[in-house]
Amino acid sequence: MICLFIDTTFKDVSIALVEDNTILASINKSIPNEHSIYTVSFIDDVLKEAKKTPDMVDRILVVNGPGSFTGVRIGVTIAKTYAYLLKKDIVPVSSLKMLALGYDDEYILSLIDAKHDNYYLALYDSNYNEVISEQFNNISKVREIIDKYHPRIVSNQEMTIDDMVIEKRELDIVQIVNYYKDVKGMNVHLVNPNYLKLPQAMEEINDKRS
C-alpha cells in the first residue's frame, strides 16, 4: 500500500510517499507564499526519487485545514484532481488532529495561530477523541481550556501563550499515515477545505442580520 501525503496548510510544504511504515521519499520545505509554484513539482520529484509512477499510489492523504485558506486550497485541489483522475482513495486529514498524534497525555490541546490573538483549536483525550471540538476562537478560550484541563499543548509553530513557550511540533508522517490507515476513502467531490471560519464578507452580512 503506497500512500501519498500532501500538506500545504502552513508555511512548510510536506510531501511524502509512504509504503508500509517506510518513507520512500519526502520533501519538507518552508516556502511561504510559493505553495502554488512548487507543490505539484514536489510531488513529481518525490515520485521520481521513489522510482514510482503516479498510478502506483494507492491512497492520498491530504491535510484539509484549518490553516491558511489559500494554502489548504492548493493541497486539496491537487489531491482531489489526482484522486479523481486515477480513481484513488482520498482521505482528508485534520491539521489540528495531526499535531496531537503521537502523544498519550490525558488531554492534548492543539493550537494553530490565526492572527490577532485568535486560534484554531481542539482538545483531544489520549485516544484522540475530541473533548472540545475543532473551532476558531480567541485567547480567552485558550486560557480557559488550559486552566480547566492542564493539557499538553501542541502547535504547528513556536508560540508563546502568556509565559508559556510552546515548541513547534515536527510532523511524524508515518504516524499520521498509520492513524488514518483504516479510514475509508471519501467521495472525491465532497473533499473540501475545513476552514472553520466564514469569509469576511459573509460574517459582515450575518452581523447586520443579528
Binding site: 505539484v40 503516479p54 491537487i78 483522475l85
Partner: peptide, 11 residues
Amino acid sequence: LQCAKTIALVT
C-alpha cells in the same frame, strides 16, 4: 491552475 498542473503531472 493546480487542477491543470495535476492533470499534466498524472498524464
